[in-house]
């Protein structure tokens, strides 16, 4: 197999808090192949956004820091990259789409200017040519009357339109990888459908790989080739999408899949739940964290369970208690 586009090896990201350093991401490893879409799923606070922001060096400084591990992008470790090289990568080779476009777009600049800025940062073209390209991009992402919209400000656009602008900015430099952090969470379902359709079409057209961060398993099922499930700063399971939905191995993945009401499930029936709650980050055990939630003692109470490949491409944090067949609820 050829070299993956992005390879994370044992990534550890910590934040300094009032009560000392906490590990928001605690030893995360996975790869993204060229042109593939990988979904990163988990509940709030599990470290999925921090993982993504570590890749592009957009952690809040100085409190957030990548402490250990390698971030191999096209074979080179981004952690060792110079500031200047990082600026080329970010926006140029890796595009980022944030959840809240209003917070990511500059409110005092016209959207055309923001697109032109992105284009000219990574490509030597004249301002006029860049503006033409900006209009073309707005048209590509389905913004009506792009010649007119290009000179408008972000607040003049609706949420869905702003997200389209974000996508245009992320795509305009033909990146090899797009990191999309909950790109549709703030949008309504019909608009979400538009945006997902657009992302899918763009991916198809440009062959860009995508790291899609979401908590919506529906979005995962429809958009992704592979899924990485995170729990409490670690990966508990990783598999191709069909395999994961059909054959989940870890109790947390099973719980997550079982707790969503489906359109075909029996109405008003009791939903499967996951007992307990995630421990606070200061109290994370060094052992199996899902066992910690379940208040279970066992082999991996104090020691981290091994991360093993069960079948080709299907990885799991192999705590025997978490991988047992159904044990009631």
């Amino acid at each position: 197999m050829s070299e993956p586009l992005l390879e994370l090896k044992n990534l550890v990201t910590s934040f300094r808090t009032d009560s000392g350093w906490v590990r928001a991401v605690d030893g995360v490893s996975f790869e993204i192949e060229h042109g593939k879409t990988v979904g990163l799923v988990g509940e709030s606070g599990c470290g999925k956004t921090v993982t993504a922001m570590s890749i592009v060096d957009l952690l809040p400084k100085p409190s957030g820091n990548v402490l250990e591990g390698e971030i191999l992008f096209k074979g080179h470790d981004l952690r060792k990259a110079k500031h200047k090289r990082m600026r080329e990568v970010r926006g140029g080779e890796i595009g980022v789409i944030f959840q809240e476009p209003m917070a990511a777009l500059n409110p005092v600049h016209r959207i055309g200017k923001q697109l032109v800025e992105a284009i000219r940062l990574h490509k030597k073209v004249s301002a006029r040519r860049a503006l033409e390209e900006a209009v073309e991009w707005l048209e590509k992402v389905g913004i009506p009357a792009p010649e007119k919209r290009v000179s408008e400000y972000p607040h003049q656009l609706s949420g869905g339109m702003r997200q389209r602008v974000m996508i245009a900015i992320a795509l305009c430099c033909h990146p090899d990888l797009i990191i999309a952090d909950e790109p549709t969470t703030a949008l309504d379902v019909t608009v979400q459908a538009q945006i997902l359709e657009l992302l899918g079409a763009m991916r198809h057209e440009t062959g860009t790989a995508v790291l899609m961060i979401t908590h919506d398993l529906g979005v995962i099922a429809e958009q992704c080739d592979e899924v990485v499930v995170m729990y409490a700063g670690r990966i508990v399971e990783r598999a191709p999408v069909k395999e994961l939905f059909a054959n989940p191995q870890h109790a947390y993945t099973k719980g997550l899949l079982g707790s969503i009401p489906r359109l075909d499930s029996e109405r008003k029936s009791e939903l499967q739940t996951i007992e307990g709650q995630v421990a606070s980050i200061q109290e994370f055990t060094s052992g199996c964290r899902f066992c910690q939630r379940m208040e279970r003692k066992g082999k991996w109470e104090h020691e981290r369970p091994p991360y093993i490949e069960l079948r080709p491409g299907h990885w799991v944090e192999a705590c025997e208690l978490c991988m047992e067949e159904e044990h009631g609820d």
Binding site: V189, T190, Q192, Q194, E197, G218, V219, A221, E222, F245
Partner: peptide, 17 residues
Amino acid sequence: SAIPVPDPTVERERVIV
């Protein structure tokens, strides 16, 4: 039709508004 279905084996015709 806009709701993403949490089942990767389902192929759907989607009405995009």
